[in-house]
Structure formats: structure tokens, C-alpha cells
């Protein structure tokens, strides 16, 4: 099976092409550049370097979130349109679970992204080899609550994040279990791992209905729901008129 995998959920952009477990080519950038301009050319280069054509791809694996809303939109729109256009299977993988794969040792892993105002997008996983078990689902959570979850689990934790320094003090003050962390290069997404995760996953996404996992409703919708608790609409707010 030929696989194209990519992640643009944060500043880094990572693309890989695999033939089953075998890596053919990969490229990762970590520059604050526009993913919209960069993603397709890098996909094209990576596929060409692999000696393949986009039409050879059997499965497309995308990091579906959480992360930057703009980055997720570019990745998921590109993934679902490519999958539709070349009739490939579409697989979505958590961008946090992907980061957890960077941990080379077994144990508790807590990948997270800074979501500002003291909040993070985070999940807590237990890693055994390449097998991940979810202990706390990916969510938008205050950093304090994340640390409470980790304290409750009561085992040493390995944080994976490029935003470690923003939370160092908070960790030192609140965490009661031993901790370590991966940051910098070690906390960047690796699309090769994404491809491997997508290879093992059996739940296919529908190319029409697939959307990013934002893990957060918009502020406008949150406010509206607060003001209209009984106004429940069944079905979509979008209507086809032609």
C-alpha cells in the first residue's frame, strides 16, 4: 500500500510517502511560513522523490487536529480533496497522538500545544512500544487541570511540546510526579510516524464529511448556545440552494 501522510497542525510542516512500513521520502520544515503556499509543492516534491505519481497513492493520512485552525483547515481540505480526486482511502489521526510517537521509551506521555490564556490542547497516553493507549482524551483544557490529571495517574510523565518554556514554572509548582520533556526538534511531528499510524488504522474517513478535530466550538457558537439553551437544530445549518 502506498501512503501519503502530512501534518500542518502547527508551525512545522511534515510530509512523508510510504510503501507500507517502508519510508520512501519525507520532508519536514519548521519555519513560520504559510502552509497554504508550502503544502502542495512539498507534497509534489516528496511524491516525485519517491518515484511515484499522486495517482499511485492508495491511502492519505492526515493529522486532523487539534492545532492551529488555519493549519488544520489547509491539511484536511487538501487531504479530503486529494483522496476524493485520486480515489484514495482517507484516514485521520490525532496530531497529539502523533507527537506521542516521538517518545522512544515506554510510559506516560503528555503531548500538548499552547492554546493561550493558560489553556492547552492536550491528551494523556500510555506508550508500550509503538502501541498507544489513551488515558485522557485529547481536549482543550486549562494547564492546571492537565497537571491534576497527571498527578492523579501518579506515574512519571514525559511532556512533548515545543511550548515547554511557557509552562515550566507551572509544572515545577504543581506537579507531584517526576517529569521529563521532549522539546525542540524532538517535539516536531514526524509524518513517517503518521503514515505508520494510518497504515494500522482501520476506520476510514468519509471524503465528503471529514472535518478537522478542532476540539473547540467557536466563541460565537458558544455564546449563542448559552443564550439559546433550548434551540436545538437537527441537521446542518448549511443549505444547498442550487
Amino acid at each position: 500500500m502506498k501512503i501519503l501522510a502530512f501534518d500542518t497542525s502547527n508551525v512545522a510542516l511534515s510530509v512523508a510517502v510510504l510503501d507500507n512500513e517502508h519510508l520512501l521520502a519525507t520532508q519536514t520544515t519548521n519555519i513560520k511560513r504559510n502552509h497554504s503556499s508550502q503544502l502542495m509543492p512539498i507534497i509534489d516534491q516528496t511524491i516525485k522523490t519517491s518515484g511515484l505519481d499522486i495517482n499511485d497513492i492508495d491511502r492519505i493520512v492526515v493529522a486532523e487536529g487539534p492545532g492551529s485552525y488555519t493549519g488544520l483547515r489547509i491539511a484536511v481540505t487538501t487531504a479530503k480533496t486529494l483522496a476524493y480526486a485520486v480515489n484514495a482511502e482517507l484516514i485521520g489521526v490525532s496530531s497529539l497522538a502523533l507527537l506521542a510517537q516521538n517518545d522512544t521509551q515506554d510510559g506516560i506521555v503528555a503531548p500538548f500545544f499552547n492554546a493561550r490564556q493558560g489553556n492547552v490542547f492536550a491528551g494523556i497516553y500510555e506508550k508500550k512500544g509503538s502501541k498507544l493507549t489513551t488515558l485522557v482524551e485529547d481536549q482543550h483544557i486549562s494547564f492546571e487541570d492537565l497537571l491534576n490529571h497527571i498527578n492523579q495517574i501518579g506515574k512519571p510523565v514525559n511532556f512533548i511540546t515545543t511550548d515547554f518554556e511557557d509552562f515550566r514554572e507551572s509544572i515545577e509548582n504543581t506537579l507531584v510526579v517526576p517529569s521529563s520533556h521532549l522539546d525542540g526538534w524532538n517535539a516536531l511531528p514526524n509524518a513517517y510516524f503518521l503514515g505508520l499510524m494510518g497504515l494500522k488504522k482501520n476506520e476510514l474517513e468519509n471524503v465528503y464529511t471529514a472535518v478537522p478535530q478542532y476540539l473547540r466550538v467557536t466563541e460565537a457558537e458558544r455564546n449563542w448556545k448559552d443564550q439559546h439553551p433550548n434551540d436545538v437544530r437537527s441537521g446542518s445549518y448549511v443549505r444547498q440552494i442550487d
Partner: peptide
């Protein structure tokens, strides 16, 4: 619902429909 177009909501709806 919001009395005008909310950009983030609009972007999310487009992804639901585009393919």
C-alpha cells in the same frame, strides 16, 4: 444566529461542503 457572518464559523462550514 449571530446577526452577521462569523469568519471562523464560515471557514468551518466550507470544509463540510467543498468535496
Amino acid at each position: 444566529r449571530f446577526g452577521g457572518v462569523v469568519p471562523e464559523v464560515a471557514s468551518r462550514h466550507h470544509i463540510e461542503q467543498i468535496t
